[in-house]
């Protein structure tokens, strides 16, 4: 897990080149270059407004990309000919505010994509949903409404939903930021399990301890650029940039 991608020679699962993103006159990403190898777990940290969430949302094109290239699982998402819906099926995403569908049961939330995209019959999708719920420890909540779940349970369901299309990549956008402290652990455990299984993951997080624990690599972003990037023990133990030191001194 701690081996760098260059040493393992694994093919790049995600390649970001010269990525720029502006909201009107405000440029939030000012040229990002990142490569992420298959099976790698990358944690993105940085102060709020540094562009880390925007970077994550550019990877599955939830944000329109202003300039540069993003290649995910072999698809260039900036190419207008590429079917973005097809790409997104390879990339699961988990949001800070869960975004579960309140008008559906827990199982229906998970079954929606496989059934609507004709990857499975309802019966098959239900069976798969039960397996996923078992994996996140919520099998008994299959027929509950999202509104009846706690924050931690909601986020575990959201993770199960993101896994329903068997994605090769998982994106986590501050997945534990909206949770009460006592519920953070149960969600982190599910993410930890995924890391152990070799899932390629990009996590935007404020949990420094967790980033240190599961990250193969930590990227520190500031003001729309990658300020520093490296193995967690190096970045946290011996930061090279002044800005990184300053940030870490505040959060650690």
């Amino acid at each position: 897990m701690s081996a760098s991608p260059v040493e393992t020679q694994k093919p790049a699962k995600i390649t970001v080149k010269g990525l720029r993103k502006s909201f009107g006159a405000n440029e939030v990403l000012k040229g990002i270059d990142v490569e992420i190898a298959e099976g790698e777990v990358v944690c993105v940290i940085g102060p709020s407004g540094s562009g880390k969430s925007t970077l994550l949302r550019c990877l599955n094109k939830l944000e329109e990309i202003s300039a540069g290239h993003v290649v995910v699982d072999g698809f260039d998402v900036t190419d207008p000919k590429v079917d973005i819906n097809e790409v997104r099926r390879h990339v699961g995403m988990v949001f800070q505010h869960f975004n579960l569908f309140p008008h559906m049961s827990v199982a229906e939330n998970i079954m929606l994509a496989p059934v609507e995209l004709k990857k499975a019959t309802k019966v098959e999708a239900r069976a798969q949903a039960m397996k996923l719920l078992d994996r996140v420890g919520l099998k008994e909540k299959a027929d509950a409404r999202p509104a009846s779940l706690s924050g931690g349970q909601k986020q575990r369901v959201a993770i199960a939903r993101a896994l329903a299309m068997n994605p090769g990549i998982m994106l986590f956008d501050e997945a534990t930021s909206a949770l009460d402290p006592e519920m953070v652990g149960e969600v982190l455990q599910v993410i930890r399990d995924l890391a152990t299984e070799g899932m390629t993951m990009v996590l935007v997080t404020h949990e420094m301890g967790f980033a240190k624990e599961i990250g193969d690599r930590v990227i520190f972003m500031d003001a729309g650029v990658v300020c520093e990037s490296g193995r967690p023990d190096e970045l946290f133990g011996n930061p090279q940039q002044e800005r990184t030191k300053e940030f870490l001194s505040k959060v650690l």
Binding site: N60, L62, N85, E86, V87, R88, R89, V91, G92, M93, F95, H97, N99, L100, F101, L112, A113, E116, L117, A158, R161, A162, A164, M165
Partner: peptide, 14 residues
């Protein structure tokens, strides 16, 4: 909530 559309789009639904 716009997050609802985003969640659905992120699953690959048009």
């Amino acid at each position: 909530d716009p997050g609802q559309l985003e969640a659905s789009r992120s699953l690959g639904l048009g």
